[in-house]
């Protein structure tokens, strides 16, 4: 039994079958890459995991409990964090605040009217936030308002926001899209570094360099269903995959 078990999930948008009897099993502690052409349904799949979309049928079990029917914040509280394809951050706030918020959320649970405690008085949280910003390499800009960050830095900030929560499962939707080669390599190193924390990761990626440097297992998604699955070496040579998605790219 994997930490995440997805069985027969279907999702339609009008006449479009975005997910078609999708089955997926993710083992604890692995980096599971999902690849597939544009419009294959990769982001839709993640949306079904985090409660942004509700599947028409099927089941999504995390750690033995169903995620379906839970609200997004409840799903997060079970230990699932997500980096979005277009960064979702608190644009008007400083980097430090952006990281402090998820830390407080984790710390305080659902709601606390703690008007009498200043943010700065919560030293442990602040220290932890600064530490995480250091890990992702953004500590120098901690006071900057983050809407002015570059796209790559926003992604890294969002990653820091997820990491500070110590999630059990981290969902990454194209974490290096739009990044320069150097930035991409930085992110790969970063993801390898945090791999030591034993967080299970699902990573959606178009960049094969990233996929093959990180993944322990690869699933290929096409037209809403998994068409091939296995360790990286196997996927590289699978003719169905080459036909459906990779084309001559790996040649």
């Amino acid at each position: 039994m994997g930490i995440l078990e997805v069985t027969n999930v279907n999702k339609r948008f009008g006449g479009l079958r975005a997910l078609h009897d999708l089955n997926l099993s993710v083992d604890e502690g692995t980096v599971h890459a999902i690849i597939g052409p544009n419009g294959a349904g990769k982001s839709t799949m993640l949306n079904c995991f985090v409660g942004r979309l509700i599947p028409d049928s099927g089941s999504v079990m995390f750690n033995g409990a169903s995620l379906l029917g839970l609200k997004p914040h409840e799903i997060n509280q079970t230990g699932v964090a997500r980096v979005f394809q277009t960064p979702e951050i608190f644009g008007d706030l400083s980097l430090l605040d952006n990281v402090v918020i998820p830390a407080l959320a984790k710390h305080d649970g659902a709601f606390k009217l703690n008007a009498w405690q200043r943010v700065t008085s919560r030293l442990e949280i602040r220290e932890e936030a600064e530490h995480i910003l250091e890990v992702v390499g953004l500590i120098e800009q901690k006071a900057t308002i983050c809407s002015s960050l570059s796209r790559g830095d926003k992604r890294r900030l969002e990653l820091a926001m997820c990491l500070i929560q110590h999630p059990k499962l981290l969902l990454l939707d194209e974490p290096t899209a739009g990044m320069s080669r150097a930035d991409t390599n930085n992110t790969i190193d970063l993801l390898k570094k945090i791999g030591e924390r034993g967080i299970t990761k699902i990573i959606i990626e178009h960049d094969m360099h990233v996929v093959f440097s990180l993944a322990t297992k690869i699933s290929v998604l096409a037209q809403g269903t998994i068409i091939a699955q296995g360790p990286p070496e196997e996927i590289k040579g699978d003719p169905r995959v080459i036909e459906a998605y990779l084309g001559g790219e790996l040649g």
């Binding site: 985090v50 997004p72 914040h73 608190f90 984790k106 929560q165």
Partner: peptide, 14 residues
């Protein structure tokens, strides 16, 4: 403030 800037993100933050 977080609600004002990005309520969505706050929900996915637990």
């Amino acid at each position: 403030r977080a609600i004002k800037t990005n309520q969505n993100r706050l929900n996915y933050t637990g």
